[in-house]
């Protein structure tokens, strides 16, 4: 079985490299997601801010990052941040060298794109919690800060899980795009393996299966969490509460 050989673990096969690539893929997705969630809240607040320029910024942010193809966002951010950093470095300390890694560039652009969609998840979840909760909290004398963290947030995340779960799946699949700027994640490792083994169907088929498994596992986990957090709430025909 020559094809099994090329997947073996060790110097002869690509098994260990693929495993490493899988690790990078997961690391990228896991590192990006918390940023994306926090950014989602910030962008939502920007969109409902009392200051017009801030509102306009929030709207422009979502429009731009929802309209541009992820790969274009990635390339622009990668090259542009590279240019800015090297310009800064020559301004501050001429002669030294600093560059943005593909991992950081991928993290930034994926977080921007996901948070553009995430801000709408936040809006929906906040609507589901209702304004009354915030009003009740502030009439009890809680500061907006405390009202949010002590009253709204504990109720909010139950409504946000389906939306953020979907975004997690999108994020997981979008990490494959970062292979274009040569990050050694799953897809890029597969292309490298194909360059030497000449078995494109085997390797791309294999990583396709890995992605499907990751997505299936994620949705399973999401269903479990949804079930768990909606304990004690009456389920209606379509949707929760």
């Amino acid at each position: 079985m020559t094809w099994l050989n090329s997947l073996s673990y060790g110097s002869g096969g690509w098994g260990d490299e693929l495993l490493h690539g899988l690790g990078v893929t997961l690391a990228l997705a896991l590192a990006t997601f918390p940023f994306a969630i926090v950014l989602s809240f910030l962008i939502h607040w920007a969109k409902v801010s009392r200051y017009r320029p801030v509102r306009m910024f929030g709207r422009a942010y979502t429009t731009v990052f929802k309209s541009l193809p992820e790969i274009l966002t990635l390339l622009i951010l990668y090259y542009q941040s590279q240019a800015i950093v090297s310009w800064l470095v020559t301004a501050v300390a001429p002669g030294s060298h600093l560059s943005i890694s593909p991992f950081v560039a991928g993290m930034m652009s994926l977080a921007f794109v996901i948070s553009a969609y995430g801000s709408e998840v936040v809006r929906g979840a906040l609507n589901a919690v209702g304004k009354g909760q915030f009003e009740a909290a502030s009439s009890l004398g809680l500061s907006p800060f405390h009202a949010f963290f002590k009253v709204i947030l504990p109720q909010l995340w139950r409504h946000a899980i389906p939306g953020f779960g979907n975004l997690w799946v999108i994020l997981l699949k979008d990490t494959s795009l970062v292979s274009v700027i040569t990050l050694f994640e799953l897809t890029h490792v597969a292309t490298l393996a194909i360059n030497t083994t000449r078995q494109p169907f085997l390797f791309f088929g294999l990583i396709a299966i890995i992605y499907v498994l990751l997505v299936t596992l994620s949705t399973r986990a999401q269903k479990q969490i949804e079930k768990r957090v909606s304990r004690g709430f009456i389920r209606e025909e379509n949707g929760d509460v």
Partner: peptide, 12 residues
């Protein structure tokens, strides 16, 4: 087909 990234599907 919802689980496979489109880029990987194209390569495949």
């Amino acid at each position: 087909f919802r689980g496979v990234p489109l880029l990987v599907l194209m390569f495949l």
